[in-house]
Design a protein around this nucleic acid. Structure first.
Lengths: 142, 142
DNA sequence: GCTTGACTGAGAGTGCACTCGAACCCGTAG
DNA sequence: CTACGGGTTCGAGTGCACTCTCAGTCAAGC
């Protein structure tokens, strides 16, 4: 499989695939006679895993660390497990955080509930909510 | 309250506060005799709200839109509500996504369970080539 | 033979959200 | 008086993760 097809199948752009190879996230790909990358379908599973790490907010640095450990063979598995566990815990915290914020957001939205117009009685955080004809010299494109 | 104290109390740096004012996320602050910013404590509530939006991944562009609507007074409340609702929905989706990925991550970690040795040279996503599980996991630290 | 389109490596550019530095001003304590 | 610990503006720099441009190569099809 050439880079174009891998791009389609993996959801990464060809640019990104080359970039990942360059920085070491993807193994250096075999080249065919024309020095074009030729991929085995197995790489898709690794890419899917990388995408999952990325989707959960792991920085590339850490993915690199994981990739490096992996390339060093099975002896690094305990380290990899630790890495993944730490990441999982961070993700768990992040989710909890998001959920807490979601609750507050919902409360705020309820404050706006059905309000077609008028009183902003519930908006606790509006020091300047349209009560003064502020000469707005802000937000400019300067 | 001067910028230094607001920084301490709000958790933003003084740099960031000035930056937010510059782009319009914070209202142009009144200046005292020495043209130093002098803040009312009420601004803290607005900043806390901004931090919540940020924590849930709202881009600054959208916060700016919200801030602008807010500055236009109560008439824009329906729009603000819509904005917040859309954002809430996106956050909900994001949480669901993270949770799904967390499950897969947990499965992967379980695969590493006791992790002593094996033949995991080509990590195809499931490093488990049939080793005994030890079920030793530290869940939800903190 | 020539065009087309996918590929190559290297490196520059992008967008986001800050973050920092430089050069200056200002009020108070010692 | 002088040092200090704040403050001011403006513009440049940072880190991340791509994303794109460029000049060139190559195989296949007309």
């Amino acid at each position: 499989m050439k880079i174009g097809e891998l791009a389609k199948r993996s959801g990464l752009s060809a640019h990104t695939i080359r970039y990942y190879e360059r920085i070491g996230l993807l193994p250096y790909a075999d080249r065919d006679g024309s020095s074009q990358r030729d991929y085995d379908a197995a790489i898709l599973i690794w890419i899917a895993f990388l995408r999952r790490l990325k989707a959960t907010g792991m920085p590339i640095r850490e993915m690199l660390l994981y990739a490096e450990l992996r390339s060093r063979g099975p002896a690094t598995e305990p380290e990899r497990r630790v890495l993944l566990e730490q990441h999982r815990n961070r993700v768990g915290e992040h989710i909890a955080d998001l959920q807490a914020n979601l609750l507050v957001l919902d409360a705020k939205i309820s404050g706006y509930a059905g309000a077609e117009k008028g009183t902003d009685h519930h908006d606790t955080g509006t020091p300047n909510d349209g009560r003064k004809p502020t000469g707005k010299r802000q937000a400019g494109t300067r």
